[in-house]
Design a protein around this nucleic acid. Structure first.
Length: 379
RNA sequence: GUGGAUAUAGCGCAAUUGGUCAGAGCGCCAGAUUGUGGUUCUGGAGGUUGAGGGUUCGAGUCCCUCUAUCCACC
């Protein structure tokens, strides 16, 4: 089983380590997103140690559709398949219930989708999601939940959250059964529950209490950063995180910008993931300590500086803004690759700085200074 | 040198017999993206229609001259 050890706190900010059968994760941590068992932008698992990756994230739904979880199981599980010996977290496919809206039917048993690849009908419920994730043999499996739009009616959210709770009970039961089977690859697979409730304080808190009683391996806050304001998201975190167990990791799903992460760490969050560093990198946006820059802008055409002076990433140690801009304009894969390596290095390095700051009791001042830099426009 | 063809936005092209016809695409410029959108989405800036003259109420469209390019033939 996993062991979560709180090493230090500053206010509600937590510095901890999470020991799993696949290795120890130092938190707060940013999980590098590799939906289809690959970090988009031609980044290999061989590159990850050089950019400080501790844990990789993949997706149940996408891997079920292609290549198929049975195939991944035959290949020894996702970690062996990818040649990545550190922890992996798999998202449950629950978010696809939300993000593929229009192609779905939600019922008590589960959800019927149309595959975005070939249109075939797929059914996924709590048991299916757990079986797929067991086949993938990730370190951490996420509960199968529904992520309702934050603007949804109270009655819709209440019904949805109640169903998500029932689904969580089924997930826990099925995970226990799968972990007891002889031919399960990772018989110590962990299960994180997911808190929902939109921006409704009472629903969020009541749900947090219910899932805390289930004694899971970790807890996620889901359904945020889906259209509400940053202030609302921070308010929900202020209200709900205190109701999640202090001796378990807390994961804020899908978030976010560097500023979002700093604010959430301050509110007690341990785990993060977001497509921003990878997607924005592919689209030419690079994160720096002096604001985000768009390398596609004409002003970088003959800029011979690295993306960021002093950055230790493979792109900045070797190439200029002008060269990377050229690669991006020309559609060369190398351009995306260098951008993604830089952005992930930036995120991972920021998380290291955050951990060091909490260790040294200076997170508050670190956060203030960092935010001022991030909002600068000096590039 | 002779004959023929072409000339519209940065590029290759559209504009029924002269009558809202000066346009779309690509490119360019900029913005978006939060449990993934690699080929996505949204905006924007560019043209005295090669130059000059003529016919007409009206010319990218017809006529003349010039210029440039291309193709044949000497």
């Amino acid at each position: 089983m996993a062991k979560y050890t709180l090493l230090k706190t500053e206010g509600r900010a937590k510095r901890a380590q999470f020991e799993t059968v696949h290795g120890t994760v130092q938190t707060p941590v940013f999980m590098n997103v590799g939906t289809c068992a690959a970090i988009k932008g031609a980044v290999s698992t061989l590159d990850l140690s050089g950019i400080g990756t501790q844990i990789e994230l993949s997706n149940t739904y996408h891997l079920h559709v292609r290549p198929g979880d049975e195939i991944v199981k035959k290949m020894g599980g996702i970690r062996k398949f990818m040649n990545w010996d550190k922890p992996v977290l798999t998202d449950s496919g629950g978010f696809q219930v939300f993000s593929l809206a229009g192609l779905r039917k939600i019922k008590e048993e589960g959800v019927t989708f149309h595959s975005h690849v070939d249109g075939r009908v797929i059914f996924m419920g709590p048991e299916e999601s757990m079986r797929i994730q067991s086949n993938l043999a990730s370190t951490i499996a996420m509960a199968f939940d529904e992520c309702p739009p934050s603007l949804a009616e109270r009655s819709y959210i209440e019904n949805s959250v109640a169903r998500t709770t029932r689904w969580l009970e089924r997930c826990k039961k099925e995970m226990a059964r799968l972990n007891s089977l002889e031919d399960t690859i990772n018989r110590q697979q962990l299960l994180f529950g997911i808190n929902q409730g939109g921006t409704l304080t009472d629903v969020r808190i009541e749900h947090a209490k219910r899932i805390t009683e289930m004694e899971l391996d970790g807890y996620a806050v889901g359904g945020l950063a889906v259209g509400e304001t940053h202030e609302e998201m921070y308010r929900v975190l202020d209200e709900v995180v205190p109701y999640l167990p202090a001796d378990k990791p807390v994961y804020l799903m899908g978030v976010g910008t560097p500023a979002n992460i700093l604010e959430a760490v301050e509110r007690g969050v341990d785990f993060f993931d977001c497509v921003y560093p990878t997607r924005n990198g592919r689209h030419g946006h690079a994160y720096t300590n002096h604001g985000k820059i768009n390398l596609l802008n004409a002003k970088y055409e003959t800029d011979d500086r690295p993306i960021e002076e002093g950055c230790g990433c493979p792109a900045c140690r070797n190439h200029s803004r002008a060269y990377i801009r050229h690669l991006l304009k020309a559609g060369e894969m190398l351009g995306m690759r260098l951008m993604v390596l830089h952005n992930l290095y930036f995120y991972n390095t920021m998380m290291t700085e955050i951990r060091d700051a909490i260790d040294n009791g200076c997170f508050a001042s670190y956060k203030k200074t960092k935010l001022e830099g991030l909002e600068a426009k000096e590039n």
